[in-house]
């Protein structure tokens, strides 16, 4: 099976310091993959590299088997949508305006919006439950509503891969779950591959098919939630001691007990 996304020995450096060092991994089509890791481990850099916002100094990223360097930006936008943290729209852009911008990669200057575009925009708003908000300016919405509007824009691109950078930051617990459930449904119903950076490890464990743990620019664990989220990994990578058990689906759940004392974490 061809990977939705594949990284092969990618190396990214800032000012001579390696942020990602010889990273390789493989993301299956139609799965939810979470990238976890402590602050400064290179998660956001990895997401930028996967979305061609950064070009690695060495190594290659493949999208459905195609070298990302050979895919032009417009072609890429039809296959991959990316949502970054804290995007802001001008104050009078409505939800519908925003979702219509999602059709931009599919449009040419000589043809305006088609009937098909309108259908896809309506579909995207229906999928994310923002139809009632269509004529409201995006900035007037609550955090959860805004996030759903941005996801609707991404859906309007009709991508096969959706990348998200911490989609639940700044949201309360109910809205966090709402976004995670939405992503899960989009993944199941539309065979959309979802790749996201997550800070909340319990969310990652509950919703992911596959988890990649980063530490100091290297992958230290990758696999199913039960394989990756373990007391050993949490102690080594995040330097926390936890009480961990498994729910009915055999997914790990944990509560942090405290910080690891210095000598126990590996350097």
């Amino acid at each position: 099976m061809m990977a939705a996304l594949q990284a092969q020995n990618i190396y990214v450096a800032f000012n001579g310091k390696g942020i990602l060092t010889d990273l390789s991994f493989f993301i299956d089509k139609g799965k939810i993959t979470s990238i976890i890791g402590p602050n400064g481990s290179g998660k956001s850099t990895l997401l930028k590299t996967l979305s061609k916002n950064l070009v690695p100094a060495r190594g290659t990223v493949y999208l459905s088997g195609k070298d990302l360097r050979t895919v032009n930006v417009k072609e890429l936008a039809k296959r991959m949508a990316v949502l970054f943290q804290s995007s802001t729209a001008p104050s009078d852009v409505t939800v519908r305006d925003l979702v219509e911008y999602g059709r931009y990669p599919h449009q040419n200057w000589w043809q305006g919006r088609s009937e098909a575009d309108n259908d896809i925009v309506s579909w995207a708003m229906r999928q994310t439950g923002v139809e009632e908000l269509a004529d409201r300016p995006v900035v007037t919405l609550s955090g959860g509503e805004q996030q759903r509007a941005w996801i609707a824009m991404a859906l309007a691109q009709q991508p096969s891969v959706l990348l998200l950078d911490e989609p639940t930051t700044y949201l309360d617990i109910a809205h966090q779950l709402e976004i995670m459930e939405l992503l899960k449904r989009l993944n199941r119903e539309n065979a959309l591959s979802v790749v996201m950076v997550l800070h909340d490890l319990n969310h990652a464990a509950k919703y992911s098919d596959y988890i990649v743990a980063l530490h100091r620019g290297k992958i230290v664990a990758a696999g199913s939630p039960a394989e990756v989220v373990t007391t050993d990994m949490l102690r080594a990578v995040f330097a926390v001691e936890v009480d961990l058990w498994h729910d009915q689906e055999q997914r790990p759940v944990f509560v942090a007990r405290g910080l690891v004392t210095k000598d126990a974490s590996y350097q």
């Binding site: 979305s51 930006v73 936008a77 995007s87 911008y101 200057w109």
Partner: peptide, 19 residues
């Protein structure tokens, strides 16, 4: 229209396929 897209910020514009 490209200016509209640019107004959404560099990262969003790029992910919408704008150079």
């Amino acid at each position: 229209q490209k200016l509209n897209i640019l107004n959404l910020g560099d990262e969003v514009a790029r992910s919408l396929g704008l150079k």
